[in-house]
Amino acid sequence: MQQFCEQLLNGLNLGSVYALIALGYTMVYGIAKMLNFAHGDIIMVGAYTLLLSSTRFGLPWYLAVLLCAVVCCVLGVSIEKIAYKPLRNASPLTVLITAIGVSYFLQSSALLIFGSNKQKVDSLIKIKGFTVNGINVSGESIVTLSVTIVIMILLTLFIKKTKMGKAMLAVSEDKGAAQLMGVNVNATISLTFAIGSALAAVAGILYMSSYGFVGPYTGSLPGIKAFVAAVLGGIGSIPGAMLGGILLGIIESMAKTYISTDLADAIVFGILIVVLLFRPTGLLGKKRIEKV
């Protein structure tokens, strides 16, 4: 029981990180109708920024967090402007291959700059954990969970209550109609990439506080798994991304404990295939009628 509860907590911790990354995927997919394959690598960039700013140069934590968010935002928006924007009307195949290219570009650039060895990043979280009924609750878990919950609430409020949030919803429903209603589609898409990348930066920081090492490929696997989470929850749906992320995190840590560490990833991907086969719209996704 104690082990189960600790694994549940671990799962929630990991799941929160997945959920934050999945939000970026799902928002971009909802609005730009593309799978931003490079999204996972933004986490890696965020983690390296943290390494340089906090661990190497000793910036205070709030400046380090701010710097990470800004760097990732600028990167995300520039990627959109340079690589994706010219392809708005191209086939999905073309866009996806480009996104894979961007992902590889980020990874190989990091490899050239920082080398292939993983480097230690000091955790920003200094809060001490506590023990209830013999179950360890670490400071990292507390912070990760609370930060995730706060971000989810803020994001939901932003989309439901603000003008820009509503513009995002409008663009995701119908780009053309939104444009006719005076919504600046390009700005909205940029904003989506900015928010998604900032969330990835936060996810990167939280991921580092639990795992502690960054390498050029740090972002790729969590990125792909977060995409699985987004699909599981229903791509394009924000509550879906949260639910999918948390579920996936719990499943993964349970599988690691009770089945096999080697096969945990296979199980995660197996879930993706099963979901896509039997409920392609995910748990909370809407069905769309294709126009002919």
Binding site: P86, L87, T94, I97, T98, I100, G101, V102
Partner: peptide
């Protein structure tokens, strides 16, 4: 490779 992928795609579709 990665730059080649991006450039090929952009040049064929942009």
């Amino acid at each position: 490779y990665s730059i080649a992928l991006i450039v090929m795609m952009l040049s064929s579709s942009s």
